[in-house]
Design a protein around this nucleic acid. Structure first.
Lengths: 340, 340
DNA sequence: TACATTGATGCACACGTGTGCACTAACCTT
DNA sequence: AAGGTTAGTGCACACGTGTGCATCAATGTA
């Protein structure tokens, strides 16, 4: 049988109320009693019953991590997996468990968000890389459960109402392009992914454009190339747009995997990188250290992002500093390797 | 405020007991009453309060999915991510949520398993790709919570005591090697990963050996090459063991990513694949369709594995067919592409 | 008509924890 | 010494759901 506070109360010779207060560090209990009770609890391997606790005190110790599952080559499933490792790391310190799920049932479309709300299974939401409907957004607001977003909030809601953290994609695009220019590039192509419903690629492209114009380089619409986010599309870029590649001296790939494919193809064609052509990627995936040459890229501060989001959601759950919203945009950094 | 069965009872003009029984399909309640109550529940968006339910009925609706996080290039984090998508898919149908965590706290080493047990937060364990200590194994047994393993059980426990499903790595090794032999290979190298504490690579190698010996080909210890599980190690295999590669006509890579690196290097050296040398990988990662040439590999039935494990754990939770253990070994299949 | 049987429902308590309020004992003040 | 204050603790109820047992109405039987 499981140990309950009543068992501890019996051993300590006090009532279960005193045990409850002692273990929750209530100021009403004397230090002496607290120490004694905590000792007993430790030796008996006591843990609070999660169900009972949530029933009376409204704390479940669970956080819903909402994400969008995908089955792509390396891209978002790897990114999510890595970000989740970081999130778990910080949640663990606060003795929080993560329920990982998609916002909507892939078949029925039923909302997991409203189900969790009604079941009162969780203390808050961390929303990673998925947009939720207006209706669910309103449900969460009505429930007063805290939400922290790890991306730009959806269009329909006032940004002032939400806590969110994300990385500055505009700056990332700017840094990548600026670096290429500093290295001497004068005609720069950018390749981006076409299979995303978010606007991160638009922002990166805007940063690319800004860097060009600041340096007095003409921005050309035709140098923006959207293709699938795969190794092979990067590899076959020489076949798709040969005349463009022949006339540029730098390429800013907005995903590492596309850059990876391109680097391989370039090597096979005897194009020297970085001497003939300079290449920058985006994301700083683990593969960047394995490409030949190693890939210069934009690093997104995954760990910092996870830490801020976790700290914030914990604060909100504990009603600390919750009178106003926090929105923070983290700076990506340039990681210079051999391809530039 | 949340809707409770008392609210429904008030609307329906019955007691909360009747509502509870009706929604749980108790035979004591008339069909007429049931239908009426279920209708009301639906219109009121009712969901059971998870905490209260677990407190009284011992069902939480949560499953712990225990895995070992890793930060590698494509390997296990991608595999876990994909397997988890499948697991979620089947759990979702049963309205189960997944709490995803590691067995032990990476810093303190504290056991999440015993914590969850004591907190009574979950109904069962799905253990993916991680070994748990004898002590925790005993704790789980004492708690009578069901466990299903998605890999070989640890050495210390009697296999008859556990439910588990995994894929036949011996057969995978056999199929890969047999295929190479059928395609005319007579001297076959195998490359495996050295960064795993499980014995899947040993099994694959044993299958490799069996296939060789069945066809009267001499097994040579020196043709077994353990290297890191990275793209680059595959790529530089020509540098590491040039004399061996020069004298073989087939290579069985026990991870796709190593094979991927090798294929790239081979193309650069003008070695024709499959004409000069045939190559097989393992796992059927998404990248296999992007390699040049596309990679023949061994497919592990991820979806089937997830389906069986989920069905089984649900059965065990509901005390169906739980008088004996189920152990099933799934067959991997050969996926023939261009590299053989 | 009286009684037995069956089917449907409600009452009351249990599960483990949190908390407002009342109570006690000890100490302080005048 | 009487009254007031304070610190520490226990009582009793609440949270939402499940369930054994009692109850009640309806129906069947003799």
């Amino acid at each position: 049988m499981k140990v309950t506070i009543k068992d501890i109360a019996a051993v300590a010779g006090v009532s279960h109320s005193t045990v409850s207060r002692a273990l929750n560090d209530s100021p009403q209990i004397s230090k002496q009693t607290k120490d004694k009770i905590k000792d007993i609890a430790r030796t008996m391997d006591f843990e609070f019953n999660a169900g009972a606790r949530s029933l009376s005190g409204r704390k479940t110790g669970n956080i819903a991590v909402v994400y969008k599952a995908s089955y792509d080559q390396f891209g978002s499933s790897l990114y999510i997996s890595q970000l989740f490792i970081e999130l778990r790391h910080f949640l663990e310190r606060m003795d929080m468990d993560a329920i990982l799920l998609e916002a909507y049932h892939p078949e029925t479309g039923a909302s997991n968000i409203s189900r969790l709300l009604n079941q009162q299974k969780i203390d808050g939401f961390l929303i990673v890389h998925d947009n939720i409907t207006r209706k669910d957004y309103d449900s969460i607001k009505r429930s007063c459960l805290p939400v922290v977003q790890l991306h730009l909030p959806p269009m329909y809601c006032h940004k002032e109402e939400l806590d969110y953290f994300f990385t500055d994609h505009f700056l990332g695009g700017y840094l990548a392009t600026e670096h290429l220019i500093k290295k001497g590039c004068r005609r720069i192509l950018t390749v981006l992914s076409n299979d995303s419903d978010s606007d991160e690629y638009e922002l990166r492209t805007a940063g690319y454009r800004q860097a060009l114009e600041e340096q007095g380089i003409r921005f050309e619409e035709k140098l923006i190339i959207p293709v699938d986010c795969t190794y092979l599309k990067g590899y076959y870029l020489f076949n798709t747009i040969p005349e463009l590649i022949a006339n540029v001296d730098g390429i800013f790939f907005q995903t590492d995997i596309q850059a990876f494919g391109f680097l391989t193809a370039a090597r096979e064609r005897g194009i020297r990188i970085p001497e003939d052509l300079k290449v920058v990627g985006y994301d700083d995936a683990p593969i960047c250290e394995s490409t030949i040459p190693q890939l210069t890229t934009i690093h997104q501060p995954r760990r910092k992002l996870a830490e801020l989001a976790c700290d914030r959601i914990i604060d909100l759950i504990n009603k600390r500093n919750n009178e106003s919203r926090i929105q923070e945009i983290l700076f990506p950094t340039l990681v210079i390797r051999e391809s530039t």
